[in-house]
Amino acid sequence: MTLTHLNARGEAHMVDVADKPESRREARARGRIRMQPATLALLAEGGLPKGDVLATARIAGIQAAKRTHELIPLCHALALSKVTLDFELDSTQGCVWVEAFCRLNGRTGVEMEALTAVSVACLTLYDMCKAVDKAMIIDGVQLEEKRGGRSGDFSRQAQQTQEAAADVQPAVRGENPLHGETPVVSVRFLAELRERLGTEQTELDPAQLAVADIAGVKRALMAADPRYALLEEGRVLAACNQIMATDATPVAPGDEVAFFPPVTGG
């Protein structure tokens, strides 16, 4: 593996692509901006002082993709044939997901364009909302997939599935780990609760949940094994994807639910 932007003397240089064949290139990147629930609600209602936030961020992302070569020193200027920006308001995780897709028929990949579009769209969201929330965090900016070109295709999801398959946790007390097409709900237990259950981790098929929330996860566990009656004894706290949850917090396939006793640090 070599770094293509360095020449034999280790100096930065732009790769000469004149002799590379043209091919269909596509890239999809994603990122998010986390914010207070109140900010997200204002954004959803269109109540922010600077006006239509998502429309502005979409135009900013498209413009940024087209101007990537002006920002990133060794990027080629590309005539993109398609740039799209999608936004998803996620009240469970308190964030706006930003996804960019770029395409062209050409000689270089478009992943830098997709990543730049996501980054600038997130920055624009920050700018549009900062009057009401300065603590917003932009994170998780990453390439999801790319197609075409000599280096071949890349898909983060496929890579993660492979890694997960290579790292299968042993089944806990005969419960089958379900590594298939449908993502499972993984459940972990911490501290004294883990010791009393004798279990660190288990998995639920989302089909086992009569109601897809934390209370539903508890009921499904208790139906599978009476030991889990401990989840109803005394005060047991829960988190979904590492955010504090209540019985009514929704749980989706692929989520990680954790149960633990009241905290005693400090």
């Binding site: 501290a191 004294e192 005060r235 009241p262 905290v263 005693t264 640090g265 400090g266």
Partner: peptide
Amino acid sequence: IMDRLKTRAPFWKKEHTASGDYWVSE
């Protein structure tokens, strides 16, 4: 910050004493 940390940050304390180990209660 200390008050919030003791009631909201996910840490759990187990004490090892001459008479055995036990998890500290809230």
